[in-house]
């Protein structure tokens, strides 16, 4: 395939992915807006007003970046895992496998779909958050980079989950039992400074801590971890997962007999 044909194939897949999540918006876009609004009301306004400041900011301001990042992580992940597993389940993935579309274009198409949903949900949640608090942007470049890297990283993780999944239970196990606990323990609602030293160090083994803090640094200018190190970790894991995903596609694991 020429580069132009590959670009056409990529745009076709991306268009299809975006159409898919827009078509089922009550399942893909609305839940995050509602859930995050509840978080803003309960944790930000009702409880937050009694907590006072955290990390030098009002509690509402402190939690908003983490909540936006939480929405990006869950949406980019679940978009790819459900779309890819769905196409495996109904065998429509064969439309791609029999075509001359290269594997990296197939992977990029699904990733861009996940990134697009992550970004759209981030915009919706950010817009909702503005009803509750102001959102100072400390460094827009860092904000954009973290959003891009994080949505890519979790879209890749969703893709790998989709390849290995054998049934619909398998695509909800990781989000429910791994992603959600890690997100809640990833410093979305509190600063690691509040934890005893031992638990603060244990928390630093949680990759979500780096994602949340890097984003919070971009928005508020404060972070519990070294931001450069956080970027390095996100970049390293993104590259590793990308090559592992490519290996899965090339070997045809769970896709070709």
């Amino acid at each position: 395939m020429s580069l132009r044909e590959q670009y056409i194939a990529l745009m076709t897949l991306l268009r299809k992915e975006i159409r898919r999540f827009l078509r089922i918006w009550p399942q893909t876009l609305l839940p995050s807006a509602i859930t995050m609004s509840l978080y803003f009301v309960i944790f930000g306004s009702l409880i937050g007003s009694r907590i006072g400041e955290m990390g030098g900011f009002r509690y509402m301001e402190f939690v908003v970046p983490g909540l936006i990042m939480m929405a990006i992580v869950t949406n980019s992940y679940s978009n790819v895992v459900s779309s890819f597993f769905g196409s495996k389940f109904n065998h429509s993935v064969e439309e791609l496998l029999v075509s001359p579309t290269p594997n990296y274009v197939i992977l990029l198409g699904f990733l861009l779909g996940g990134i697009a949903r992550g970004l759209l949900v981030a915009i919706i949640v950010t817009a909702v958050s503005l009803f509750f608090t102001r959102l100072p942007i400390y460094n827009i470049g860092i904000v954009m980079l973290v959003v891009l890297f994080t949505s890519t990283l979790f879209a890749l993780a969703g893709f790998i989950n989709g390849v290995y999944a054998n049934n619909f239970d398998d695509i909800s196990i990781i989000p429910t039992f791994v992603l959600t606990p890690l997100t809640y323990l990833g410093g979305v609602f509190y600063s690691l400074d509040l934890l005893p030293e031992f638990w603060a160090n244990v928390s630093k083994l949680n990759p979500l801590v780096y994602v949340v803090n890097a984003f919070r640094y971009g928005v508020l200018g404060v972070s519990d971890v070294n931001v450069t190190f956080a970027f390095a970790m996100i970049a390293v894991f993104t590259v590793l997962l990308f090559f592992y995903s490519m290996h899965l596609l090339s070997s045809g694991k769970r896709l070709r007999q």
Partner: peptide
């Protein structure tokens, strides 16, 4: 049958063209 049952008939055929590099 190996197509997405929720996709429109026209989209299924047009998308397949895209996977072979046909301009829209």
């Amino acid at each position: 049958f190996n197509f997405n049952m929720f996709e429109k008939v026209g989209d299924i055929v047009v998308n397949q063209g895209g996977y072979y590099g046909l301009p829209l």
